[in-house]
Each structure stands twice: as C-alpha cells, then as structure tokens.
Write a protein that binds this DNA or RNA. Structure first.
Lengths: 237, 237, 237, 237
DNA sequence: AATGAATGAGCCTTCATTCAT
DNA sequence: AATGAATGAAGGCTCATTCAT
C-alpha cells in the first residue's frame, strides 16, 4: 500500500511535472515566440533542470506540438460540440465565436500562442496552419455544407471558404485584443466584438435600408435575426 | 547618349543587384520562412557572393524589414487609393479585396511571405503584426468610420473591428489558397472567393428568405459586379 | 567518506575543467597572441569540445580578462607582500624584481602573455595597460612616496615615475629573455639580470671612480647594501 | 615640359597620396590599435577610396610595416647620431632620452603607435619587438660596450641589458604620458621626467647620504649637466 | 590613378540534444 | 526521476583582398 501510494505519488508527480513544463512552454512561447524560446527558458520557467524537459518530451518540436495539440484539442472539441449540437445555423455560428472568446478569457496566453505561433514552427514540423486552424475550419465547413443544402445559405457560397472566413474574422478579431489594438480588459468590448463578428458574418456590415429593419438580429430588444434578414432581402436585386 | 546610358547602367546595376537580392530574399522566405532562411540561401538564390548581401543590407533583420516594407508599402498604397478614392462603401470593400487578390495573382510568393511570415520575426525586430496588417487595418477603419457616420453601417459596428474583420476574412481566404486548401491555379475559384469575401462581409452569409431574392449580387450570370453594385446601392437606405 | 570524496570530485572536476581551459588559453595566447588565438584553438588545446568554453566563460573577452586577472592578481599580490613587508627600500626593490623574475621562472609562458599581450585586447575590452601594469605601478609608487618622505630618495624624484621606471626596466629586462634577445635557459644570466636591474635602478649604471670602490653594492660577498650605500654616499658631490 | 611638369605633378601627387594614407594609418592605429583598425577606416581618414590603399601598399601588413619603418627609421637615425656623436656617456644617455621625448613632443600619436602597437602585429608579420625597439637597443648597446671597456660602467653590467633597461625606462616613462597616467600637456612634467629617467639610469634613485649632496646632478640651479657629471663622478667611491 | 562593388574565408556565438552520474 | 556538464553543427557577420570599370 505504501508502495502503491508511492507509485501513485510518483505517477502524479510525473504528470504534474509534465504539466508544469507544458504550462511553462506555453508561457514562454507566448512571451518570446517559438523561435525565440530556448529549452533552457522553458526549464527555468518551470523551475526544473533542463535535461528534464527531454525526459517528458522527445524534443523541442514535440513540445511545441504538444502545446498546440493540447490547446487545439480542447478548442476543436468545443467547436465540435457546438457544430454537432442542436440549434439554428446562426446560433451555432455565435456558439463558435463564443468558444473562441471564452478560450481567450480563460487563458489569453495560450490563445496568443495558438494564434500568433501558427505556422511558425520549423519547416520539417507537422505543426502549421494546416493542422491547426484547418481542423476547426474543416469541421465547421460541414456545418455550412449542411446549411447550404438546407437552403439557409446563399447558393453561391463555398462552405469551406465560408468556414475560413468565419475563422479569419475570429482570428483577426482576437488578434486585435492579443496585440493590444483593442483593450482586452474591457469585458464590454469583448462582448461587443463577439456580437459584431457573428452578426457581420451572418448579415454583413451594411445597414438595413428599410425603416424598422435597421436593427440587426443581435439587438435583442428590437427584432429577431430572421425578420431582419427577411425585411432586408426583398429590397435587393 | 552612350554616357547617359553608361551612367544609367551604373545606377541601375547597383539597384538591380539590390533588387535581385531582395527578390531572392522574398523567394527564400516564402519557401523556408523567416527562421529557416539563411543569408547563404539568399545569396545563392540571388547568384551573388555571400558578403554582397551585407553590402546592401546591414544585417538579416534589415533585409527582412525591407522585404516587408517593400511588400506592404505597395499594398498599403493601393489600399489607400481605394479607400480614398471615389465610390460607395461596397465598391470600396470590393476594391480592397481586389487589391489583395490582385497582389496574390501578380506575386503569390510575396503574398505568402506577407501573410505567413507576419509576426515571425525575432523579438527585437520592428516587424510584426502591429506594423504590418495594422497599417492597412487602421487605414481602412477610416472608411468604416465615415460610412458609419453616413448611416451606411449598422449602428453597433465598431469601425476598427469591422476593418479587422474584413482583413481577417481576406487573410484567411488567401491563406486557403496559399496553403493549398484551395486551388490557386483555378482562376474561377479565385474570382468566386473574391466575390464571396466581399459579399459575405457586406451582406452576411445568410440566404435571403424571400423568393427571387436568393441571388446575391455577385452571381455573374445575372449582373456584373459594377452594375450589381450600382443597382443595389441606390435602393438601400 | 566515499560520499565526501564524490562531492569533492564533482566540485573539483568542474573547476578542474575551468582551470584546464584557462591554462590552455594562456598557452595559446602565449603562442599566437590575443588576436591570433581562436576559441577553437583553446578548446583543442584543452581537449574539450568547442562549446564547453562557453559553458565556463561568457565569451572570448571574458576568457581573456580572466587570463589577465588571474595572472596579474597573483603578481600584484606578491608585489604587495613585498612592498608592505619589512625591509629597507633597496631590499624591497630587489624583492619586486625577484617576484617578476620568479614568476617568469615558474611560468614563462604566462609572463610572456602578461608582458607581450598587454594592451593588445580590443578597444571595447577592459584589459589594457591601465588595468594591468598600472596596478603594480601604483602600488609600488607608495613605496617610493614613503621612501622619499624618509629622505631615502633624491628629492627631485617623482614616486609614480620612479615606480614606472622600475617596472619599465623589469619589463624590458624580461622582454629580452621573452623575445630571445637573451638566453632564458641560462640561470646565471637570469640572476645577473635581476641584480643588474635592481642595482642600476638603485645606484645607476655609472662606475665608481675611486679605486677600491669598483665593487658594486650588490656583490654580497663584499658588503651589505646598507654599508655599501653608507660608505659610498658620503664621498659623493 | 607640360609633360614633365605633369609627370612631376603626378609623381608628387602620388607620393602626396601615399603620405596622406600613411599619415591616416598612423592616426587610426593610434586611435584604434592595429587590429581594431580596418583598411576602410584608414581610407576614410585619408579621404580616399578604399581600393586606393592597395595601390600604394601591398596589404595591411605592409602598411603597418611602413608605419613602423618610417617611425623607427627617424628615431633610430637620431639615436645613432647621439650614440656615434661626441660627448661623455652621461651626455649621450641624456641625448637618447631627449630624442625619445622630442619625438613624442613632435608627434605623440606616432609615438603612441610605436610604443603601444609594438608586438601587436599578426604572428606572420616581421614587425615586432625584435625589429622595432631592438634596433635601437642593439645600437645603444655598443655605446655601453665601449663605455664599459673605458671603465665608465660598473664592471658587472651587461651592455645589452643596460641598453634594454634604458629603453625600458624610457618606454614606460613615455607610456605614463601616452596612457594618461601623467599629464602630457604639462611641459614642466615632461622635462622633469626626462631628467629623472636619465639620472636614475645613471646614478640610481637613492639619495646621497651626506648633507649638501641631496641635490641631484640634474638640478639646473646648482650645476650644468656637464659639470655636474664631471664633478660628481670623480667623487664617487 | 582612382573607385567601390564583389568575393569568400574565417571566426565567434548559440542552442538543441546527449550523456554520465 | 533528475541534473547539468558536454558536445558540435549551424549560421550570422566581418573584413582583407581582388577586380571590373
């Protein structure tokens, strides 16, 4: 029993160490970027000897990959839940934006890494835009494929591109906060940004022409998105 | 005349070399990324001796910065021309998208560098997202500020964020081609992507509910962009 | 005990390596001079890997500085012991000369470095004549200041300059051996040089005019320096 | 005639250029030291294109060698004139010291180079202590050889070493000024240093014990150098 | 003679990775 | 498991020298 306890301890201690190092890696990546980050930095941040990093990770690349995988797996999982869950398209789009911003709220540094360090890994690495955002993009594209088949989308939209545009907007929106272009401490601003991203994606930036229809769907007090869409559309052509 | 030619030759030859090296740097950056790009590679690609790179550029960072500045200055200049030119908002948005895609058509590798290598430069460098995309984003944000004042935009949109979203969509749209997610050799696809980006940004992805209105303006079979814009814009407001 | 031995081993092994590298640096410096000495040479001479030099020394300059500091600190310490010790002025002057020649006897290469490489370090470096010989010169100048106050020196001598002259004579005397102008393997010659330097400094090169006075003060078998000085001095002027 | 004049002009212009470059080299060497001095620096200082240095000098080493040769040849010539001229030993010793200090007064930077840059040249170079000071030392050693044969020197002095000591004292004395240890703008100090060097070398630093004898020979108010030397020497014992 | 662009060997330094303890 | 000394390949930068004009 003492043994098993010790073993458990060891086991815990091991994964604890592993997590400590991973956490340190995220922080250092966020601060210095992948290439500016040396293994020694990660070890120092984690408070461990620097050979130890190689006990838990084969090499720097695997460390980075783990950082990405860990970060993305959570994100992709949540995106999948939204995409495969119940609700109308608009609802799901808002859900995806929510997931991204929530991730940012919970761990801005991790998101900074995921956003800014995408495609920064060395040439040989498997980590790049393809394996990162693209997972989420492909996943969401199914959403748009189905929506299009259901006639919810304009007929000329390419689902994959739609998905790319959504994530492009999300990324650049978050980037505005990540890089300090916008103030991340302003919760109101974050909420407004979320809404604007989703609604712009859904309805565009243009104001409605008809009176009474100018209120976008996300203004809860005035109208549902659907009616807004309805009222606007007839006037086009 | 022989004289002036010789003088011109000298003048040209110098800047020719410089341009050759710059060109080579763009190509190597596009191929290997900032960190994977060695001065030796650039020199070899340019067909010049190693040391010559240092004749024209103080160091690797300055070379990089020049690549970025050159690339961006052209892009920003063109964006400014569109933004400050004549035309309705929608027209200008399409114009901005056009500029980006045209740049891609003319020199895909340069665009690849500008898109993928943003924010990859070392910590000490002045090259980063801030000084790159942000210039264009800030510039365009004026467009949205004015449009909002004119009532052309939904009242709840933040101009800076709108601008960021537009460029986010453009970036991710181009990224789809840059990374091979979409086929860059397909001119039709490029045209469709352009249209979809602009129109999604302007009108959202949602289909019009009313019959007869489902065709978005960018459907080529119905109308040219210009006429579509023309016919559409007057009716709004 | 095995433990303590192991601990001692570890402690020693580290500084042993450091000392090995320092030793190698001295040798290579002595052989090739500061600028001709490459880190690769030092590593090879020490029988360690290239990178290890940087494990123990921040850079080439620090390695150099350490070589100088180590060398000088020993020398300056010994000079100080002589200067601050007991004895008459003449005794101390001979002692200083002794220290220099003894250092040469023990480690001619180190002395060669200290003598020939002084002031060779790069502009930015802190190593130069000022911080090297000047320490010893300043230190000894106190000796002459006190001696002058005690009336042991001619009234018109500047203590600092006197000190400089002594070390100038010592340096050039050693240089004669270092450069091969004189034969360093000839112990007798070394002894004679020592004596000549000290006595020339103390009494000048000029022979005594009166017969029977041809024996210089430093001939131990005939008279003590003190009595020699005494007996000689009254007759002057 | 126009031709010959032109040729003369060219000839003059050429050697003028050569001298300009040499002068610039001396200045830059004095300022930055041999290794810290790049050909480009010399060219810039001289105000010429940098390939031109290679028209007049085969390579950097030859340039340095020329600097040394030029500097030393003047010095050695003057030392020779003193050594081979008329006068008593003491007179000649004072003359040698005079030559060195006069050289310093006329062109301190050149002397700085000659003093501080000795032995700094690369391993392969012929320029080093051997070919520099040693010429003067060997030359002067003949003086001491003859003086010793004439019984003017203590019997135990080695002529070569005596010569070395004299130049060592001169060098370190000048070094005090060159390095700023002493104030080179103080003409009085320079004169006193000259006197102290010569007299210390001739008579040593020790004060005479007898009253009224404390004034060294070089005190101008009591006696001329010559008479002092004369009157002093015979009275020694 | 004069210019300065072009060349490329050389060297310092960094840092991912391995290894002995 | 943990440590940190040891390794060495890689690459940025300098600068003496050459060469075309």
């Amino acid at each position: 029993m003492g043994q098993s306890k010790s073993a458990a301890d060891n086991g815990n201690r091991e994964s604890e160490r592993r997590r400590t190092i991973l956490r340190a890696a995220i922080d250092v990546f966020a601060r210095k970027g992948y290439h500016g980050c040396r293994i020694a930095d990660v070890a120092k941040e984690a408070g461990v000897a620097y050979g130890l990093v190689y006990h838990y990770f084969k090499n720097k690349d695997e460390l980075l990959e783990t950082v990405f995988d860990t970060g993305w797996s959570g994100f992709v999982t949540r995106v999948r839940a939204v995409v495969e869950g119940e609700g109308a398209l608009a609802q799901k789009v808002r859900g995806v934006v929510d997931v991204a911003f929530e991730a940012y709220r919970v761990d801005p540094r991790a998101v900074k890494v995921l956003i800014l360090e995408i495609a920064r890994s060395p040439a040989g690495s498997r980590i790049n835009r393809q394996t990162a955002f693209v997972d989420a993009i492909r996943l969401s594209s199914e959403l748009f494929t189905r929506a299009k088949e259901a006639g919810e989308l304009r007929s000329d939209t390419d689902p994959l591109l739609s998905s790319a545009l959504l994530f492009g907007a999300i990324e650049m929106g978050l980037t505005a906060f990540v890089t300090g272009l916008a103030d991340a401490r302003d919760t109101q601003a974050l909420e407004r940004a979320k809404a604007q991203i989703a609604e712009t994606f859904l309805h565009g930036v243009l104001a409605d022409a008809s009176p009474g229809a100018e209120s976008p769907a996300w203004k809860p007090e005035k109208s549902s998105e659907k009616s807004a869409t309805k009222s606007k559309v007839p006037k086009r052509t």
